[in-house]
Design a binder for these strands. Structure first.
Lengths: 163, 163
DNA sequence: TATTGTTATACTCTATAACTATA
DNA sequence: TATAGTTATAGAGTATAACAATA
């Protein structure tokens, strides 16, 4: 807070472009780009989230359950890199809103299987396309080929290489 | 985390691989992959951060200042998609630790220019390679060509296309 | 004893808005 | 009035550990 030595007048100010240019030149920095890209996506989605009844994370969970009825939440948490306590909260909230139901199977009463309710399915139907459109906007600067490449590379990096 | 293979009465349990497979089939989902990749990176870096005197975000800021002496923090905040109040905290912390100095130029006393101290430069020298090594690990499943492609594509997505 | 999930707590991040000061 | 940065406060997200119930 204390003022310091006022030296060197007449410096040209550093512009955004110069910073980007210089940071880009730090050897390998895909990690930095991923972070920036993620922040951009997050901003966009956050905007959407404020206007909708559901977040993108919740929608992903609903989709996963819809595609895999009977899914256990622990398994889903591991796949999506979400900690169990966080998943508990998310699932509880979704259940409160009647979007999913929990079923305790008789053969193993310590696990809980998840299913979509009709409302849950309707939610996926409704917001799926909206979030898809948002994603298309985010990646609109890539052509189809490039998008495909990016997807493939990111799948490798994320460890989701099941082909 | 590893056992899933007990196939019990009627419905077989859903495995991680099945979830990944099914989620992968949701048409366009690079956003999801970016998030997962980011989480992986974050985990790795967090590990490093706990053991070092500086976080990756701080190191990026130091690097940016080192490469652009006289940088203003508002400009840097915008480039890195960090809000001003957050940047204020980060910068204050770095100043307290004597890694940077703030200089108020005489020609515009409401702006503040940033410079690295010798300690700051030493910090970049010390931890730069460590974080670089971590990044190489994270992307080790890509060959050089693939890494290059990924970097180029992500730069486009992040809006850092200055070429 | 190991698995599956929950609760409680604390800590980091970030967002927002109101504020100071300079121009 | 606009710009540059700060402070204050509150909210979301996540981590950790301790806990309960089932196997």
């Amino acid at each position: 807070m204390t003022q310091q030595n006022r030296i060197e007048d007449g410096n040209e100010p550093v512009t955004k472009e110069q910073i980007i240019e210089s940071l880009s030149n730090i050897e390998k920095s895909a990690g930095l780009y991923i972070r920036i890209a993620e922040l951009k996506i997050f901003k966009k989605l956050h905007q959407l989230t404020k206007e909708s009844e559901i977040t993108e994370a919740e929608l992903t969970i609903l989709r996963a359950i819809g595609l895999n009825p009977g899914l256990r939440q622990g398994v889903l948490a591991d796949v999506l890199h979400i900690k169990w306590p966080s998943m508990t909260k998310l699932i509880s909230s979704l259940e409160l809103r009647r979007l999913i139901k929990r079923v305790v199977p008789t053969h193993n009463r310590r696990s809980i299987e998840l299913f979509l309710t009709d409302d849950g399915e309707a939610m996926v139907e409704k917001y799926g396309p909206i979030y898809k459109k948002a994603e298309q906007d985010i990646f609109s600067m890539l052509n189809d080929d490039e998008y495909q490449q990016l997807e493939t590379l990111l799948r490798k990096v994320s460890g989701w290489v099941n082909d």
